[in-house]
Structure formats: C-alpha cells, structure tokens
C-alpha cells in the first residue's frame, strides 16, 4: 500500500535516483560510444581536437564521402578474416556448452541426492577449483600437450573448457536439483524404476529451466575466455577473443585500429542479444547460489 509519505520526493530519494541515473549512464555510455564510433574513421573515433567530430563524423565525410563507413567491418571481417575466428568460436562454445551440461546434470543430480560425506568434500574441492585463476592451470597443460602433440587443436580446448566449467556447473545444478522434491524420483523407484530410469523419465522433463540458466553461464565462460584460448590454440584455430588481442599487436598502422574496434563491437553483439532474450534467466542464475545461502 503506497502511502503519501512513500511517494513524496525526499532528498534521500533524490540522491538515490541521481546515483542510479549516474550508474546507468556509466554502464551504457561506453557501449553506445564505441558502437557509434565503429562506423567512423580513426581520425574521428580518436579525435583529440574536437570530440564532437566523433558524433557528426567530420573526418569520415571528408575521407569517404558519407557520415558513416563500414570500412572497419570490411577490414576486420574480410581482410583480416575475422569470420574464421567466429566459426572457431561457434564450434568451441557449442560443444563446450553441450558437454558441460551433460556432465553437469548427471553429477549435480548425484550430488543433490547423495547425503554421503564425500559428496560434501567433492563440492568443497569444486569450490576451490572454481576459485583458481585459469592461467595457473594453463601453465600445467602446455608441456604435456606439446609432448602428446595435441596442442593447438579445437577439441583440446573444448575439453579443457568443459573441465574448467565443471565446478561452477556442478554447484549451480546441485542447488537446482535440491529444489526438485525427492519424492518425485523416489516414488518412481518404488514403482520399479532404476535410479537412471527415474532420472531419465521423471527428472529430465522438469529440469530444463535450471539447465537453460546454467547453460547461459557456461556459454559466457566459454565465449569470454581469454587465458585458455590464447595459450592453447594455434593461430589458425584462434577464437574471437584472442584474435582481437592479436589484432592489437599488429594494428599499429593508421586506420587498422578501427578493425579492432569493429571486431570488438561484433564480439559484443551476441552478448547484447543474449541479454535481450534471457534477462530473466540470467538474473535468476546470478542469484541462485545466493538464495540458497
């Protein structure tokens, strides 16, 4: 019930609205600026003389004849063959998500239904693994991978990302399965199902909301990874994030920075679409661990 007292504008309220407004500006402005600027030439995007050049595209008009140019995108996608990296990323992300969800649902279900002490220890170990910087593990991979000649290939990276993803997936699905009443699968087992049949016919049909939420975060981990993909992939197998980083090393030439800007905007676009469609699931996933305490 909203009383008059609550709807009145108090100084405290004004300050807190101002804070929210400021935050939203800080959160959104860099993306809008970079997106807008990616259709300009370098002289406009990095315009020291007058920042409004970037808005109206003064130099862009001089150099190309129009206020907008797709030169950065053309350079990145076609000249630098960014599309190849996009395909690689697609393969890595797709298989990482599918495999980690398969492993994770089986393991998370087992952990949620087992009251044994070793289940607890497994979860604790997973927590420690989850906290380790990924680069510490990468230094352990390199020598063996060189020895076995599996360095640089996409499948190697996929299985490594699956493993690095497991601790998080396990925790999330474990707490999700705890919320599915035990009675459901246990009554199926009383009716004569084996444990796996009960899982297959009773749990699988109701687990999709949790699996989708977890899948979104597995996607983000695989898509956003830099430490593993930069160290474990050969140049022709690079995914988009290390590719953007290697752009920077080679693009000190005038104009080529815009290739990197275009690539950065292209890499952000899928995330934007993801948030647009799955905002509710992402928010519920972020707080899933928190609500359980």
């Amino acid at each position: 019930m909203a009383t008059q007292l609550e709807t009145r504008m108090t100084p405290v309220k004004a300050i807190s609205f101002a804070l929210v407004g400021l935050w939203l500006l800080i959160a959104a402005f860099p993306f809008l600026w970079t997106f807008w600027g990616s259709f300009k030439v370098q002289a406009d995007f990095f315009s020291k003389a007058d920042w409004t050049n970037a808005l109206w595209g003064t130099n862009t008009t001089e150099e190309t004849g129009g206020a907008f140019t797709g030169a950065g995108y053309h350079g990145a996608w076609i000249t630098e063959e960014f599309w190849q990296n996009v395909i690689n990323s697609g393969i890595v992300v797709f298989f990482t998500v599918i495999i980690s969800l398969t492993f994770g649902t089986l393991g998370g279900y087992a952990l949620a239904r087992s009251g044994f002490r070793y289940a607890f220890w497994l979860l604790m170990a997973a927590l420690v693994f989850r906290a380790m910087p990924h680069i510490t593990l990468v230094s352990g991979y390199l020598l063996p991978f060189f020895e076995w000649n599996i360095w640089g290939h996409l499948p190697t990276t996929i299985i490594v990302l699956v493993a690095i993803n497991q601790p998080f997936t396990l925790w999330m699905l474990h707490s999700f399965f705890l919320n599915i009443p035990k009675d459901m699968d246990e009554s199926a087992m009383v009716d004569g199902c084996t444990r796996f049949q009960a899982f297959r016919h009773v749990i699988v049909p109701v687990m999709w909301p949790g699996v989708i939420t977890t899948g979104l975060f597995s996607f983000l981990l695989a898509y956003n990874d830099f430490a593993v993909t930069a160290m474990l992939l050969s140049e022709e197998n690079e995914t988009i994030i290390p590719a953007i980083n290697s752009f920077l090393g080679t693009t000190q030439v005038e104009g080529k920075v815009m290739y990197a800007v275009a690539a950065v905007v292209s890499a952000t676009a899928p995330l934007f679409v993801l948030i647009l469609f799955f905002q509710r699931q992402i928010v519920s996933g972020m707080t899933a661990g928190a609500v359980k305490g």
């Binding site: 959160a27 898509y223 994030i241 953007i244 980083n245 995330l271 992402i282």
Partner: peptide
Amino acid sequence: FVSLLPFLVTPLV
C-alpha cells in the same frame, strides 16, 4: 538490462 552489459561483456573486450 543496461546494468547487465558491463558484467557480461568479455573482460578483454
């Protein structure tokens, strides 16, 4: 929606 962008964007990007 706007707040989620800086969190989900690739750290390197």
